[in-house]
C-alpha cells in the first residue's frame, strides 16, 4: 500500500488532479470538453471560419457540402460551416450574460428571503412562483414581442425568467444554514444584516447554484434558439443557430438538408455539453450525492 502511495505522490500534481476529476466524474470531463471546444470555436471564429458570418455569394446558393463549403451553403449563398462557427459566439453571448443576470437577481433575493423568513419570505416566494408559473416560452415570446427583437432583450428576458430558480435554490440552502452556529456567531459578533448575507451566508450557500449555472445556460441557449426559430428572437441573417434552423427548415422538403441539420447538431451539442457539465459539477461539488449514486 505504501509503495503505491509513494509512486502516486511523485506524479505531477496537475496530472493527478485531472485524473482524479475524471475518475470521480467522467460526466464532468465529457461536458467540459464539449463546452470547452465550442468556447474555443466562438473565440477563434474569425481564424477558423473560411468565410465571414454574413458573407454571401448569390451565385452559389444551396450548394451541397463539398471541399469548399464543408457544410454546404444556404439560400443566401452563405457558408453554413462558417455560420455555425460564428453561431457559437451568439450561443455564449446569450448564455453567459443571461446566467450572470440570473445570479445577480436570483441570489440576493434567495439570500434575503431565506435569512429573514416569515412574511417577507412568503411574499418573495409567491412573487417568484408567479414568474415561474407562466410557461416560460410563452412569457418570453410575449415580452420579446412587446419590447423588440434584439439580443439585449433576449438576454434580459431569459435572465429574468430564470432568476427565481436561483433564488429558490439559494433560499433553501440559506434555510438550512440559518440556524447553524456560525450564523448565530456572526450575529453575536455584531455583523450587520448585509454582511451576514454576503460575507457569511453567500460563500456557503452558493454551491447548489454554481452547479445549476451550466444546466440553466443550456436552457438559455435552447430558449434563445426557440425564440429565433419562431421568429420573435434574433433575426436572420444573424448567424444564430435557431434562426439558421428556421431558414433551413423550408429547404428540408426540397432536399437541401444541410442548411438546417448542421446548426441543429451544433445546438444539440452545446446543450448536451452544458447539461453534462452541470450534472458533473453537481457530482463533484456534492460528494454525498456521488456516493449515493454509485
Amino acid at each position: 500500500m505504501t509503495a503505491v502511495a509513494t509512486t502516486e505522490a511523485t506524479r505531477p500534481r496537475i496530472g493527478s488532479r485531472l485524473l482524479g476529476v475524471i475518475r470521480r466524474s467522467p460526466t464532468f470531463a465529457v461536458g467540459f470538453t464539449i463546452v470547452g471546444s465550442f468556447a474555443v470555436l466562438a473565440i477563434l471564429a474569425p481564424l477558423i471560419a473560411p468565410f465571414g458570418a454574413i458573407e454571401a455569394y448569390p451565385f452559389e446558393v444551396l450548394r451541397s457540402p463539398d471541399g469548399k463549403y464543408l457544410f454546404g451553403s444556404d439560400g443566401n449563398g452563405m457558408d453554413v460551416f462558417s455560420r455555425v462557427i460564428y453561431g457559437a459566439q451568439y450561443a455564449f453571448g446569450i448564455a453567459v450574460p443571461a446566467a450572470i443576470l440570473m445570479l445577480l437577481i436570483g441570489v440576493p433575493f434567495g439570500l434575503y428571503a431565506g435569512y429573514v423568513g416569515g412574511l417577507t419570505d412568503e411574499i418573495l416566494l409567491r412573487i417568484m412562483d408567479v414568474v415561474r408559473s407562466f410557461p416560460s416560452i410563452v412569457l418570453a415570446l410575449a415580452v420579446v414581442a412587446a419590447t423588440g427583437q434584439s439580443v439585449v432583450n433576449v438576454v434580459l428576458v431569459i435572465g429574468l425568467l430564470d432568476s427565481p430558480i436561483f433564488a429558490r435554490i439559494v433560499r433553501s440552502e440559506v434555510l438550512a444554514l440559518r440556524s447553524s452556529p456560525f450564523v448565530e456567531a456572526a450575529v453575536a459578533a455584531g455583523n450587520p444584516t448585509w454582511r451576514i448575507l454576503f460575507v457569511h451566508l453567500l460563500p456557503n450557500a452558493i454551491r447548489g447554484a454554481t452547479a445549476l449555472i451550466a444546466v440553466r445556460m443550456a436552457w438559455a441557449v435552447r430558449i434563445s434558439a426557440t425564440l429565433a426559430f419562431i421568429g420573435v428572437g434574433i433575426q436572420p441573417p444573424t448567424p444564430e443557430w435557431g434562426a439558421m434552423i428556421r431558414q433551413g427548415a423550408e429547404y428540408i422538403i426540397s432536399g437541401e438538408w444541410w442548411v438546417a441539420t448542421f446548426p441543429g447538431l451544433a445546438l444539440v451539442g452545446v446543450v448536451l455539453g452544458f447539461n453534462l457539465l452541470g450534472d458533473g459539477l453537481q457530482d463533484l461539488l456534492d460528494p454525498k450525492r456521488r456516493t449515493a449514486a454509485r
Binding site: M1, T2, A5, E8, A9, S16, R17, L19, G20
Partner: peptide
Amino acid sequence: TRDLGNRIRV
C-alpha cells in the same frame, strides 16, 4: 482512501 488528487492515503 483516495484524496482529491486521486492518491491513495492510508
